[in-house]
Simulated scan of single mutants.
Amino acid sequence: MLDLHIQNETSRLKAVVLGTAESIGPEPTLEEAYDPKSKEHILAGTYPVEADMVKEMDAFNKVFEKYNVEVYRPKLITDYNQIFARDIAFVIEDLFIKANILPEREQELDALQYLIDQIDPSKVITPPEEVHIEGGDVMPWNDHIFIGTYKGSDYKNYITARTNQYGVDFIKELFPNKIVKEFDLVKSKIEPRDNALHLDCCFQPIGKDKGIIHKSGFREEGDYMYLVDLFGKENLFHIDREEMYHMYSNVFSIDTDVVVSERNFTRLNNWLRDHGMTVEEIPYAEISKQEGLLRCSTMPLIRE
């Protein structure tokens, strides 16, 4: 049996699911692309190729090996994008919570059935149909659970709006002892620089008491101020619109003092080192063209 344990985003990682870029299938058409950043690269002729993305994920996997993290990979489905393991399910405490994913992506969860079979069935949660929630929007942080959502009345028109109020309420019911705080995110179907697809596109905790944040990713100033008050302004690394676009807030913590980051994030990586962290730099710029980065590619199962 697999004993799941996740209390936060940064404690020492013991086991994780890492997606795969193998057999990713043909480049999507404009109509098939889910997010504005993928569309931008399809139009520009710069959409990433499989071989480059496989290399990037291999580099990520080598970092996990270096830190003795047990890595699970999805069962391979031919011609199918299985990079972003974070979207399809997530772990809080000892519960494995399935996401009600976009219908086109349901097979991604089937590819992890061998793993789900190793978990106590009473710990595997399938939300009711009206609940929309994806792992990129959910961040356990000790006594808090942070959740990204979109409260606009036009929610159903936005394929980039992934977590609804039902999703927030569902988590509140599952974890009555936690402070569940939702954040209303800015969404755009056409401009990737103004689209916080998930909460981890504009915020992520790092270390014991720090975070990376993009103020303009929040529709309400009060939501941004909540995090400033909680973490302290001096503990937050503020990223600008262009850095948000390159996914600076989507790094991944292996421990409170070890962060995996994209090698081109010079300003961020220097700041992390200045604050006593080891930064494992890897190439991940091709994968980022699909509006996802390091956190999006992982699903932590066990942290100390």
Rank of each mutant, 00 (worst) to 15 (best):
Val49Ile: 13
Ser297Pro: 00
Ile133Asp: 08
Pro36Ile: 10
Leu174Ile: 14
Arg241Asp: 12
Val138Lys: 02
Arg12His: 11
Asp169Gly: 07
Lys233His: 10
Ser253Phe: 00
Lys98Gly: 02
Gly276His: 08
Ile77Val: 05
Ser38Arg: 13
Thr126Asn: 15
Phe64Cys: 12
Val168Pro: 05
Phe265Gln: 03
Ala89Glu: 07
His275Gln: 11
Asp3Lys: 14
Leu112Asp: 02
Glu108Asp: 08
Glu242Leu: 08
Tyr80Lys: 03
Arg12Gly: 07
Ala59Val: 04
Ser153Pro: 14
Pro300Asn: 06
Ser188Glu: 04
Ile24Arg: 15
Arg219Asn: 14
Ile239Met: 12
Glu281Thr: 03
Phe218His: 11
Ile159Ala: 09
Val17Arg: 09
Phe218Lys: 10
Met244Lys: 11
Pro36Glu: 10
Thr278Val: 15
Gly292Glu: 15
Ser122Trp: 07
Phe183His: 03
Glu50Ser: 05
Met244Val: 00
Glu281Asp: 09
Asp110Val: 07
Val131Lys: 01
Lys151Leu: 15
Met299Lys: 03
Glu108Ser: 03
Ser253Ile: 00
Phe265Pro: 01
Tyr226Trp: 13
Asp184Leu: 02
Pro127Thr: 03
Lys289Thr: 06
Leu293Ala: 14
Gly292Thr: 10
Ile116Gly: 08
Gln204Ala: 04
Pro205Tyr: 06
Arg162Lys: 14
His214Asn: 13
Val138Met: 08
Glu191Met: 06
Phe252Gln: 00
Asn142Phe: 14
Thr160Arg: 09
Val228Asp: 04
His5Cys: 11
Asp257Leu: 00
Lys55Gln: 14
Met299Cys: 12
Phe183Val: 05
Ala21Glu: 13
Ala89Arg: 04
Phe84Tyr: 14
Phe60Pro: 09
Ala89Ser: 15
Asp58Asn: 15
Thr20Gln: 13
Glu182Ala: 06
Glu129Val: 09
Val279Arg: 09
Thr266Cys: 06
Lys75Ala: 12
Lys55Tyr: 09
Gly292Ile: 13
Glu32Thr: 05
Tyr226Ala: 01
Asp110His: 08
Leu13Ser: 07
Ile239Val: 15
